[in-house]
């Protein structure tokens, strides 16, 4: 199924800002508000975090508007507590600076927070978008220069799309084995 992203611009911007807090990236354009721009190379948003979150296989697509609303409510409360004035032109979470977004995500994923599982789940999928691109065939994602797979340095497969490493070993003894090893190689 073709990857889609949430239709509502506020939902999209809010979740992009969340994804950018998990694995930050460079702004897509000078007027990009969702991405805070604390990095010089692409992050979770460019890696496809929104496509992953909206993938029907994960079962979250219909909940995304609600999640964004909830996140913005937390952002508003956080700003109020810190006496920050939020720019009304963008959703409240987007209006926070990177460090404040980070502090809020830490709060929401603290073991004591009642919504921890929700926000950790979103963070998990954002991280997965970056390091494994589960919304794309992996070999294709690598061939297209997927930013996360490229950054981690995942090696390319052979021409048939399968990985093989014929040179895989130092091929020398690198430690003494345990003195109580059985003849079949197990602990005694």
């Amino acid at each position: 199924m073709a990857a889609t992203t949430p239709a509502d611009p506020a939902t999209r911007a809010t979740l992009e800002a969340f994804a950018d807090t998990i694995i930050p990236g460079v702004k897509r354009s000078p007027d990009d508000r969702a991405i805070a721009g604390v990095e010089d190379d692409p992050g979770a948003v460019q890696a496809g975090a929104l496509e992953v979150l909206a993938d029907p296989a994960l079962g979250l697509a219909e909940a995304l508007d609600g999640m964004a609303g909830l996140l913005n409510m937390h952002a508003q409360n956080h700003a109020r507590a810190g006496q920050h004035i939020l720019d009304p032109a963008v959703p409240p979470f987007v209006a926070l600076d990177f460090d404040t977004r980070t502090a809020l995500v830490q709060e929401l994923t603290d073991p004591s927070h009642p919504e921890r599982e929700v926000w950790f789940g979103v963070a998990l999928f954002c991280t997965m978008a970056f390091d494994s691109a589960p919304h794309l065939p992996t070999a294709e994602a690598l061939a297209q220069g997927h930013p996360g797979l490229s950054l981690v340095g995942l090696r390319r497969p052979d021409a048939d799309g399968l990985w093989r490493f014929p040179h895989f070993s130092y091929r020398r003894r690198l430690a003494s084995v345990h003195p109580h090893t059985t003849a079949t190689g197990s602990p005694a």
């Binding site: 070993s169 091929r171 020398r172 003894r173 690198l174 430690a175 003494s176």
Partner: peptide
């Protein structure tokens, strides 16, 4: 040892340097 991939070899070498055995 010829069958052990690099990661296992690295761990074995680190164990050995730290005075441990490795299998």
């Amino acid at each position: 040892w010829d069958d052990v991939p690099f990661a296992g070899g690295l761990f074995a070498a680190a164990c050995s340097r730290a005075g441990r055995t490795a299998n």
